[in-house]
Protein backbone atom coordinates (compact mmCIF):
# COMPACT_ATOMS: atom_id res chain seq x y z
CA UNK A 1 0.00 0.00 0.00
CA UNK A 2 1.22 3.44 -0.81
CA UNK A 3 1.92 5.67 2.15
CA UNK A 4 3.39 8.84 0.73
CA UNK A 5 3.61 10.09 -2.80
CA UNK A 6 5.03 13.27 -4.25
CA UNK A 7 4.18 13.99 -7.87
CA UNK A 8 6.18 16.58 -9.78
CA UNK A 9 6.62 18.79 -6.74
CA UNK A 10 8.28 22.17 -7.22
CA UNK A 11 9.17 24.34 -4.25
CA UNK A 12 11.55 27.01 -3.14
CA UNK A 13 12.13 30.16 -1.19
CA UNK A 14 11.45 33.67 -2.40
CA UNK A 15 13.35 34.13 -5.65
CA UNK A 16 15.03 30.76 -5.51
CA UNK A 17 13.69 27.42 -6.66
CA UNK A 18 15.03 24.47 -4.68
CA UNK A 19 13.00 21.54 -6.04
CA UNK A 20 12.16 20.82 -9.69
CA UNK A 21 9.35 18.37 -10.43
CA UNK A 22 10.40 15.93 -7.75
CA UNK A 23 8.48 12.66 -7.61
CA UNK A 24 9.02 10.30 -4.70
CA UNK A 25 7.01 7.34 -3.48
CA UNK A 26 7.14 5.52 -0.19
CA UNK A 27 5.27 2.27 0.43
CA UNK A 28 3.89 1.38 3.85
CA UNK A 29 6.47 -0.37 6.01
CA UNK A 30 9.33 0.66 3.77
CA UNK A 31 12.52 2.56 4.60
CA UNK A 32 13.58 4.94 1.85
CA UNK A 33 16.56 7.27 1.68
CA UNK A 34 17.07 10.47 -0.25
CA UNK A 35 20.75 11.05 -0.72
CA UNK A 36 22.69 13.79 -2.36
CA UNK A 37 25.25 16.51 -1.80
CA UNK A 38 24.89 19.62 0.31
CA UNK A 39 22.38 22.07 -1.05
CA UNK A 40 20.67 19.51 -3.28
CA UNK A 41 17.29 20.29 -1.70
CA UNK A 42 17.03 17.33 0.65
CA UNK A 43 15.95 19.35 3.67
CA UNK A 44 13.57 21.38 1.52
CA UNK A 45 12.01 18.13 0.37
CA UNK A 46 11.17 17.12 3.94
CA UNK A 47 10.00 20.64 4.81
CA UNK A 48 7.62 20.65 1.89
CA UNK A 49 6.17 17.29 3.00
CA UNK A 50 5.51 18.59 6.51
CA UNK A 51 4.11 21.82 5.04
CA UNK A 52 6.67 24.06 6.70
CA UNK A 53 6.97 25.57 3.24
CA UNK A 54 4.40 25.40 0.49
CA UNK A 55 4.84 23.61 -2.82
CA UNK A 56 4.55 25.95 -5.79
CA UNK A 57 3.20 23.12 -7.91
CA UNK A 58 2.78 19.38 -7.88
CA UNK A 59 0.94 17.16 -5.48
CA UNK A 60 1.68 15.53 -2.13
CA UNK A 61 -0.52 12.71 -0.92
CA UNK A 62 -0.45 10.89 2.39
CA UNK A 63 -2.34 7.58 2.30
CA UNK A 64 -4.12 8.78 -0.79
CA UNK A 65 -5.34 12.07 0.69
CA UNK A 66 -3.91 15.32 -0.63
CA UNK A 67 -1.98 17.49 1.82
CA UNK A 68 -2.55 20.62 -0.25
CA UNK A 69 -4.92 22.25 2.21
CA UNK A 70 -3.44 20.84 5.41
CA UNK A 71 -1.66 23.45 7.55
CA UNK A 72 1.70 22.63 9.16
CA UNK A 73 0.30 21.99 12.62
CA UNK A 74 -2.16 19.37 11.31
CA UNK A 75 0.36 17.35 9.34
CA UNK A 76 1.28 15.42 12.48
CA UNK A 77 -2.33 14.33 12.91
CA UNK A 78 -2.15 12.77 9.44
CA UNK A 79 0.53 10.45 10.80
CA UNK A 80 3.66 12.27 9.68
CA UNK A 81 6.33 13.12 12.25
CA UNK A 82 9.31 15.23 11.26
CA UNK A 83 12.68 14.98 13.01
CA UNK A 84 14.21 18.20 11.75
CA UNK A 85 17.75 18.98 10.75
CA UNK A 86 19.89 19.85 13.80
CA UNK A 87 17.24 18.19 15.97
CA UNK A 88 15.52 21.41 17.05
CA UNK A 89 14.74 20.30 20.56
CA UNK A 90 13.28 22.78 23.00
CA UNK A 91 16.52 23.31 24.90
CA UNK A 92 15.16 24.77 28.13
CA UNK A 93 12.38 22.24 28.50
CA UNK A 94 13.33 18.99 30.17
CA UNK A 95 13.73 15.74 28.26
CA UNK A 96 10.36 14.57 29.50
CA UNK A 97 8.68 17.87 28.64
CA UNK A 98 10.10 17.60 25.13
CA UNK A 99 8.59 14.14 24.85
CA UNK A 100 5.34 15.42 26.28
CA UNK A 101 5.25 18.10 23.60
CA UNK A 102 5.64 15.37 21.01
CA UNK A 103 2.25 14.08 22.16
CA UNK A 104 0.69 17.54 21.89
CA UNK A 105 -2.22 16.78 19.52
CA UNK A 106 -5.37 15.94 21.45
CA UNK A 107 -5.59 12.40 20.11
CA UNK A 108 -1.97 11.73 21.08
CA UNK A 109 -2.37 13.08 24.62
CA UNK A 110 -4.67 10.21 25.55
CA UNK A 111 -1.95 7.69 24.81
CA UNK A 112 0.84 9.72 26.38
CA UNK A 113 1.63 7.28 29.21
CA UNK A 114 1.83 4.22 27.04
CA UNK A 115 3.98 5.91 24.39
CA UNK A 116 6.29 7.40 26.96
CA UNK A 117 6.91 3.92 28.23
CA UNK A 118 7.58 2.75 24.69
CA UNK A 119 10.07 5.56 24.01
CA UNK A 120 11.85 5.02 27.33
CA UNK A 121 12.02 1.33 26.47
CA UNK A 122 13.65 2.22 23.17
CA UNK A 123 16.01 4.78 24.72
CA UNK A 124 16.69 3.92 28.39
CA UNK A 125 19.21 6.75 28.36
CA UNK A 126 16.42 9.29 27.99
CA UNK A 127 14.67 7.96 31.07
CA UNK A 128 17.85 8.43 33.09
CA UNK A 129 17.97 12.03 31.95
CA UNK A 130 14.27 12.79 32.00
CA UNK A 131 14.48 15.79 34.35
CA UNK A 132 17.41 17.43 32.62
CA UNK A 133 17.01 20.38 30.23
CA UNK A 134 17.27 18.95 26.72
CA UNK A 135 19.92 21.52 25.82
CA UNK A 136 22.34 19.87 28.23
CA UNK A 137 22.27 16.47 26.51
CA UNK A 138 25.12 15.20 24.35
CA UNK A 139 24.66 15.23 20.58
CA UNK A 140 23.69 11.58 20.35
CA UNK A 141 21.26 11.86 23.26
CA UNK A 142 19.71 14.91 21.66
CA UNK A 143 19.16 12.94 18.49
CA UNK A 144 17.50 10.18 20.52
CA UNK A 145 15.33 12.77 22.20
CA UNK A 146 14.35 14.28 18.86
CA UNK A 147 13.41 10.87 17.47
CA UNK A 148 11.62 10.05 20.71
CA UNK A 149 9.67 13.29 20.51
CA UNK A 150 8.58 12.40 16.98
CA UNK A 151 7.54 8.89 18.03
CA UNK A 152 5.37 10.32 20.82
CA UNK A 153 2.75 11.40 18.29
CA UNK A 154 2.35 7.78 17.20
CA UNK A 155 3.24 8.43 13.56
CA UNK A 156 2.96 6.09 10.61
CA UNK A 157 5.64 7.90 8.66
CA UNK A 158 8.84 9.23 10.18
CA UNK A 159 10.81 11.90 8.32
CA UNK A 160 14.44 11.93 9.44
CA UNK A 161 16.62 14.84 8.37
CA UNK A 162 20.33 13.97 8.59
CA UNK A 163 20.17 12.14 11.92
CA UNK A 164 23.92 11.52 11.79
CA UNK A 165 24.94 15.14 11.18
CA UNK A 166 27.46 16.55 13.62
CA UNK A 167 27.89 13.35 15.61
CA UNK A 168 31.07 11.45 16.47
CA UNK A 169 31.64 8.36 14.28
CA UNK A 170 30.88 5.90 17.07
CA UNK A 171 27.64 7.72 17.82
CA UNK A 172 26.74 7.78 14.13
CA UNK A 173 26.93 4.00 14.20
CA UNK A 174 24.58 3.88 17.18
CA UNK A 175 22.11 6.21 15.50
CA UNK A 176 21.98 4.05 12.38
CA UNK A 177 21.44 0.94 14.51
CA UNK A 178 18.60 2.80 16.08
CA UNK A 179 17.08 3.73 12.74
CA UNK A 180 17.26 0.07 11.78
CA UNK A 181 15.43 -0.87 14.98
CA UNK A 182 12.75 1.73 14.32
CA UNK A 183 12.23 0.34 10.81
CA UNK A 184 11.98 -3.14 12.30
CA UNK A 185 9.20 -1.87 14.58
CA UNK A 186 7.08 -1.36 11.47
CA UNK A 187 7.45 2.39 11.05
CA UNK A 188 7.67 3.75 7.56
CA UNK A 189 10.77 5.89 7.30
CA UNK A 190 11.89 8.52 4.82
CA UNK A 191 15.44 9.50 5.66
CA UNK A 192 17.62 12.21 4.19
CA UNK A 193 21.36 11.64 4.55
CA UNK A 194 24.79 12.61 3.41
CA UNK A 195 26.33 9.59 5.06
CA UNK A 196 25.53 7.49 2.02
CA UNK A 197 27.46 4.35 2.76
CA UNK A 198 25.78 3.92 6.14
CA UNK A 199 22.29 4.84 5.12
CA UNK A 200 22.25 2.46 2.17
CA UNK A 201 22.79 -0.39 4.62
CA UNK A 202 19.66 0.57 6.51
CA UNK A 203 17.14 1.34 3.77
CA UNK A 204 15.70 -0.79 1.00
CA UNK A 205 15.41 1.89 -1.66
CA UNK A 206 16.92 5.26 -2.37
CA UNK A 207 16.67 8.36 -4.51
CA UNK A 208 19.55 10.54 -5.58
CA UNK A 209 18.72 14.24 -5.44
CA UNK A 210 21.06 16.66 -7.18
CA UNK A 211 20.47 20.37 -7.68
CA UNK A 212 16.78 19.95 -6.88
CA UNK A 213 16.14 17.11 -9.35
CA UNK A 214 15.84 13.36 -8.87
CA UNK A 215 18.75 11.86 -10.83
CA UNK A 216 18.49 8.25 -9.88
CA UNK A 217 16.09 5.89 -8.17
CA UNK A 218 16.49 2.27 -7.24
CA UNK A 219 17.08 -0.23 -4.48
CA UNK A 220 20.13 0.09 -2.27
CA UNK A 221 21.91 -2.77 -4.01
CA UNK A 222 21.65 -0.93 -7.33
CA UNK A 223 22.91 2.23 -5.69
CA UNK A 224 25.91 0.51 -4.16
CA UNK A 225 26.70 -1.07 -7.54
CA UNK A 226 26.17 2.10 -9.55
CA UNK A 227 29.37 3.34 -11.11
CA UNK A 228 28.27 6.96 -10.73
CA UNK A 229 27.42 6.64 -7.03
CA UNK A 230 30.60 4.73 -6.29
CA UNK A 231 32.76 7.31 -8.01
CA UNK A 232 31.06 10.53 -6.91
CA UNK A 233 29.80 9.68 -3.46
CA UNK A 234 31.65 6.71 -2.11
CA UNK A 235 35.07 7.59 -3.50
CA UNK A 236 35.66 4.10 -4.83
Amino acid sequence: MQMLSLTKVCAGYSGFQALFEVSVEVEAGEAVAVIGPNGAGKTTLLRVISKLIGATSGEIRMEGASLARVPAHEVVSRGIAHVPENRRLFPRLTVEENLRMGAFPRAARKRYGERLEFVYGLFPRLEERRGQPAGTLSGGEQQMCAIGRALMSGPKLLLLDEPSAGLAPVVVQAIFDLVRRICAQGYTVLIVEQNIRQVLKVVGRAYLLEAGRIRLAGNSREFLDSQEIRKTYLGL
Partner: peptide, 9 residues
Protein backbone atom coordinates in the same frame (compact mmCIF):
# COMPACT_ATOMS: atom_id res chain seq x y z
CA UNK B 1 9.16 25.62 13.42
CA UNK B 2 9.64 22.47 15.44
CA UNK B 3 6.66 23.55 17.53
CA UNK B 4 4.52 23.82 14.41
CA UNK B 5 5.58 20.41 13.16
CA UNK B 6 4.66 18.65 16.40
CA UNK B 7 1.13 19.94 16.00
CA UNK B 8 1.00 23.30 17.76
CA UNK B 9 -1.12 25.92 16.02
Amino acid sequence: EAAASIGIH
